[in-house]
Computed example of a mutant assay.
Amino acid sequence: MGHEGFDKPFSDLKTSSRWLAAVVILLSIIGFFAIAHWAPLAPGATSTDFHFGSNTYQALQQLLGAIISIGLISILYEAFLRRTYGRDLRRYLRLKSSMVASGIQDVVPAEQVEWQNVLSDAADVRIILRDPGAWLPANQPWLLASARKRELRLTIAVPDEAGPNFDLVAESCGQKPDELRSNIQAAVSHLTRRWNSEVKDLKKGTNFRVVTYRSLPTYDLVVADEVVVVSIGKAQAEGPIGQQLAFVFDTSPGGGSYPAAWLMDQLKPLDSANSIWESKVK
């Protein structure tokens, strides 16, 4: 996106302002020489020509001096400060256009994402988690709240315990493979228990599905209708996942397309992925 339409009048404005300031300074200097011709007479001197009184002459000198000072400041501003301001403004406009194009809504620590707002009214939720142990039990209430209000299609992808990259996924989470395996089993078990206890209150047609993936994701991804949340963290050798950074995107009409569209493409393999648990309200 270019800014030629903005740059030209801005440049013209700078040029005209500088010329105006220069003309004012020149006229003020000429004025200094002009009023000197009618300077007050020395004490005791007499003349038939017109001369300013002492107070008037000093006032005119101060006025012309102030005009020259203002003119010089104006030229310095036009030459240096306005150039910096214009550069910053153009940078801001480029940044704003990029943000609008991407549809980014927020960048926050992952634990500050307002998952209730993201999930509790969604009708189609697709999730890729490296370690579902903490996230899934904590956010099941919002998923079930949505399913009580409308038909909800939920797909959750977790690492394939028999997959070729499982150990690497565990390592990216700072865990041993057995720890991650235990977390996955506990999270899925918790989800099935909640489903069985609340299925009678869920909307007909609601479908919950847990699948596995064999790839090596470097992020956690949640897509709820038109909201995309991707969380990334720094690599670590051991210990639980540290603080992650979450990027929230809007893909609604008029919202962003890239990189949210690229992230959503990562979910396509889930449609044909192997299911380890699935249930539907009939």
Rank of each mutant, 00 (worst) to 15 (best):
P159M: 00
P159S: 03
D160I: 01
D160M: 07
D160F: 03
E161K: 03
E161R: 03
A162L: 13
A162K: 12
G163P: 08
G163H: 07
P164K: 06
N165L: 15
N165M: 15
F166V: 12
F166D: 12
F166M: 01
L168P: 07
L168W: 05
L168M: 13
L168S: 15
V169S: 08
A170I: 02
A170E: 00
E171H: 14
S172M: 06
C173H: 01
C173T: 06
G174A: 09
G174R: 05
Q175Y: 10
P177C: 10
P177I: 09
P177H: 07
D178R: 03
D178C: 00
E179D: 13
R181T: 09
R181E: 11
R181C: 00
S182P: 11
S182F: 07
S182D: 15
I184G: 09
I184R: 02
A187M: 01
A187F: 07
V188W: 04
V188L: 13
H190K: 12
H190P: 04
L191E: 05
L191W: 14
T192P: 03
R193G: 04
R193F: 10
R194I: 12
R194T: 14
W195G: 10
W195N: 07
N196P: 07
N196L: 06
N196Q: 09
S197W: 05
S197T: 04
D201W: 01
D201R: 00
L202W: 06
K203C: 11
K203R: 15
K204F: 07
K204D: 15
K204P: 10
G205C: 06
T206E: 03
T206K: 10
T206G: 02
T206P: 06
N207F: 14
N207I: 12
F208S: 02
R209H: 11
R209T: 03
V210E: 04
V210N: 08
V210S: 01
T212N: 10
Y213K: 09
Y213H: 11
Y213A: 01
Y213L: 04
Y213V: 03
R214E: 14
R214W: 02
S215P: 00
S215M: 07
L216K: 04
L216V: 04
L216H: 03
P217F: 03
T218I: 09
Y219K: 00
D220K: 00
D220Y: 04
D220H: 02
L221H: 00
V222M: 08
V222S: 04
A224N: 04
A224T: 04
D225W: 02
E226L: 00
E226I: 10
V227N: 10
V228G: 06
V228K: 08
V228C: 05
V229A: 06
V229W: 00
V230E: 11
V230I: 15
G233K: 02
K234W: 15
A235N: 12
Q236Y: 08
A237Q: 14
A237E: 15
E238Y: 08
E238D: 15
E238M: 12
G239M: 13
P240L: 12
P240C: 10
P240V: 01
I241A: 00
I241W: 07
G242V: 13
Q243M: 13
Q243I: 12
Q244D: 05
Q244N: 02
Q244M: 10
L245C: 02
F247T: 04
V248E: 10
V248G: 01
V248A: 05
V248D: 02
F249K: 02
F249N: 01
D250F: 03
D250P: 08
